[in-house]
C-alpha cells in the first residue's frame, strides 16, 4: 500500500479526490433518479393489481367485522374515507385484524407483511380517498428539529403518553401506549389518523414540519441513554419513591440489623 501513501502526498491529490467524488455522485444520481421515476410509474401501474389483491386480502381477514365493502357493521366502523394512512397504521402495528374486542385493541405482531399491507391500504384508499401514507422524507427524524418537537410533544402528547413517551393510563381501561416501538411512519400516521382514544392532529393543528419535529423528539428521546444511571422506567416520582423505600431504606435497615446483631450466644453476657 506504499504507493497510496506516496500518491496522497502529491499536491494535486486533493483536487483529484474531490473531482472523483463529484463524478461518482453525478453518475450515481443519474443512475438512481430515472430508476425512482420508474419505480413510481411501476407503483402507479401496479395500483390496479394492488387494489384487486388488497380486496382479496380484505375479504379474507377484515370483512367479517368491517363488512364486505368496508361499509362497516355493528362491530366495526366503516373504513370508507379513512385513507391508506389509517390502514397502514392499524395493520402494520398489528392492531388489525383485531382479535378480541376489549377496551382497547392492543399493538401486536403484524399479521401481514409490508407488501400485503400496502395492497390493503391501496384497496381502502380506492374506496374513498383519505390521508395517504407519508413519504420517507416527511417522517425523516434526521431532518426534524428535536427541540421544537419537545415543546410540541409536551404541549400535545405528554398528557397521555408521559413526558418521555413511556405511556400512561386513560379512563375506561384505555391507555396511551409507550412510544418505544412505533416507527417514524407509524408516529406520523398516529397523529394524522388519531387511532381509537387518541385525538386527530391534522395538518392545520400540527403542520407536517411540526410532525417531523415530534418524530425527531420521540425517536431521539427513546434512544438517548440515561445520564443519571438506570432510568427507573422513566415514569417519574412513583418509581423513585418505591426504589427509595425498597432498595435504599431496605439496604440501610439490613445494615442496621447487621451492626446491632449480637454474636451467637457465648459464655459472657453483655
Amino acid at each position: 500500500m506504499k504507493w497510496i501513501t506516496a500518491w496522497r502526498r502529491r499536491p494535486w491529490a486533493g483536487y483529484a479526490v474531490v473531482l472523483a467524488a463529484l463524478a461518482i455522485i453525478g453518475v450515481a444520481y443519474a443512475g438512481v433518479s430515472p430508476r425512482t421515476d420508474r419505480a413510481q410509474a411501476a407503483a402507479a401501474a401496479a395500483s390496479d393489481q394492488d387494489v384487486a389483491k388488497g380486496k382479496q386480502l380484505f375479504n379474507q381477514a377484515c370483512s367479517s367485522c368491517h363488512g364486505a365493502n368496508a361499509e362497516g357493521t355493528k362491530n366495526a366502523p366503516s373504513l370508507i374515507g379513512v385513507g391508506a394512512a389509517s390502514v397502514d397504521f392499524q395493520v402494520s402495528t398489528g392492531r388489525m385484524p383485531a382479535m378480541n374486542l376489549g377496551a382497547q385493541i392492543p399493538r401486536k405482531k403484524p399479521v401481514f407483511n409490508e407488501e400485503q399491507t400496502r395492497q390493503i391500504a391501496a384497496y381502502i384508499a380506492s374506496l374513498g380517498g383519505g390521508p395517504a401514507i407519508p413519504s420517507k422524507d416527511q417522517v425523516d427524524p434526521a431532518s426534524g428539529d428535536a427541540a421544537m418537537g419537545g415543546k410540541l410533544f409536551r404541549a400535545n402528547c405528554a398528557q397521555c403518553h408521559n413526558f418521555a413517551g413511556s405511556g400512561g393510563a386513560l379512563t375506561g381501561g384505555k391507555y396511551a401506549p409507550p412510544l418505544d416501538k412505533a416507527t417514524p411512519e407509524q408516529i406520523y400516521e398516529a397523529m394524522l389518523t388519531g387511532p381509537q382514544a387518541m385525538p386527530v392532529f391534522n395538518d392545520t393543528t400540527l403542520t407536517p414540519a411540526q410532525k417531523r419535529a415530534i418524530i425527531a423528539y420521540v425517536t431521539q428521546t427513546r434512544s438517548e441513554p440515561n445520564p443519571g444511571g438506570n432510568g427507573l422506567g422513566r415514569v417519574g416520582p412513583v418509581a423513585e419513591g418505591l426504589a427509595g423505600w425498597l432498595v435504599g431504606l431496605g439496604l440501610i435497615v439490613i445494615a442496621a440489623m447487621w451492626i446491632t446483631a449480637r454474636k451467637p450466644k457465648k459464655k459472657h453476657n453483655v
Binding site: 397521555c160 403518553h161 408521559n162 400512561g168 443519571g228 432510568g231 417519574g236 412513583v238 426504589a243
Partner: peptide
C-alpha cells in the same frame, strides 16, 4: 450513581400549557 432521579431534562421547562402523564410529586 446508578439510579436516575428527577431527570428534569426529560420533563422540559415548565410552561402553563404543558402537562404530562405521571406528574406526581415526590413520594
Amino acid at each position: 450513581t446508578f439510579a436516575q432521579i428527577n431527570p428534569i431534562w426529560l420533563f422540559g421547562p415548565y410552561t402553563p400549557d404543558a402537562i404530562t402523564a405521571g406528574s406526581q410529586p415526590d413520594y
